[in-house]
Amino acid sequence: MTKSGEPLTRQRVLEAALRLLDQEGLEGFSMRKLGTLLGVEAMSLYNHVENKRAVFDGVIELLIIQAPLPLQPDATPREELWTFAHAFRDVLRAHPRVLPLVATSPLRTSASLAMLDHLLETLHQAQITGVQSIYALQCLVGFIVGHTLLVTGTQAVAGLEPGPNGPAVWQHFPAEQYPTLHTLLPVITQWTPDREFDFGLQALFQSLFEQ
């Protein structure tokens, strides 16, 4: 039983693990702390998850299934993947301290692999098949995770002090040393991470779907 009096389940363990990661990051996570959060001994957790690696795999699963592909029957593969990319990015932005885990962990749970299979099938529908479909999906996920990590910055990495984010950082360096950067300062106000994300996604999709 959890401290709320509810039965301990894999789902409750994973949801609590995600909360703990949001609070402590990877560097502060432990099975002991997870047990304390749930109000149980750490050993009780192993009735529901094999080990800490299985907990992390399950946390990634929780994030992935929050960003399902749209179910509209008339959506094109490009439209489906565009929607998924934005939905997954929104999930990741809500959990910046889990980003390093997502960036470095292969998918291993049944639910995660089901989403992977669905995404690959969507690419196959666009005639992107074989190893090319794997390359395409890796590039897509890499862009989503990488861009989100760049934008969230110090929220995702322990021990770093917050500072200027985005191109606005350029104005802190002398114009005589970096003249081209400084010619762009007047248009920095037009920059937003959302527009930058869409620009990069459009460039990637142009390569994938408009050959």
Rank of each mutant, 00 (worst) to 15 (best):
T2I: 06
K3V: 11
S4G: 14
L8K: 05
T9V: 09
Q11H: 11
L14D: 07
A17Y: 05
A17N: 10
L18R: 15
R19G: 13
L20Y: 13
D22L: 11
Q23D: 15
E24K: 15
G25F: 04
L26F: 13
L26H: 09
F29E: 06
F29Q: 01
R32V: 14
L34R: 05
G35T: 11
G35L: 10
T36W: 11
L37I: 05
L38I: 06
V40C: 12
L45R: 02
Y46N: 05
N47L: 13
N47M: 09
H48Q: 14
E50G: 08
K52Q: 15
R53G: 13
V55A: 10
V55N: 03
F56I: 11
I60F: 01
E61F: 07
L62G: 07
I65A: 01
I65E: 14
A67P: 02
D74C: 04
A87V: 03
F88K: 00
R89Q: 12
D90S: 09
L92D: 05
L92P: 04
A94F: 01
H95V: 07
V98L: 11
L101S: 01
V102I: 14
A103V: 04
T104G: 02
T104Y: 04
S105V: 12
S105K: 11
L107I: 04
R108A: 15
R108E: 14
R108K: 13
T109F: 04
A111W: 00
S112K: 03
L116C: 03
L116M: 13
H118K: 12
H118P: 00
E121P: 00
T122S: 10
H124K: 11
A126C: 12
Q127C: 06
I128H: 04
T129N: 12
Q132I: 06
I134C: 02
A136N: 04
V141F: 12
G142M: 11
I144Q: 07
T148K: 09
T148S: 15
T148G: 12
T152P: 01
G153S: 12
A156E: 02
V157Y: 04
G159K: 12
L160M: 15
L160A: 09
P162H: 09
P162A: 08
G163P: 06
N165W: 02
G166C: 04
P167W: 01
W170F: 13
Q171H: 11
Q171F: 00
H172R: 14
E176A: 10
E176P: 00
Y178C: 02
L181G: 04
L181P: 05
T183E: 15
L184P: 00
L184W: 01
L184E: 01
L185W: 00
P186D: 01
V187A: 01
T189S: 00
W191I: 00
P193Q: 01
P193K: 00
E196C: 05
E196F: 09
D198E: 14
F199G: 00
L201C: 08
A203M: 07
L208M: 15
L208K: 07
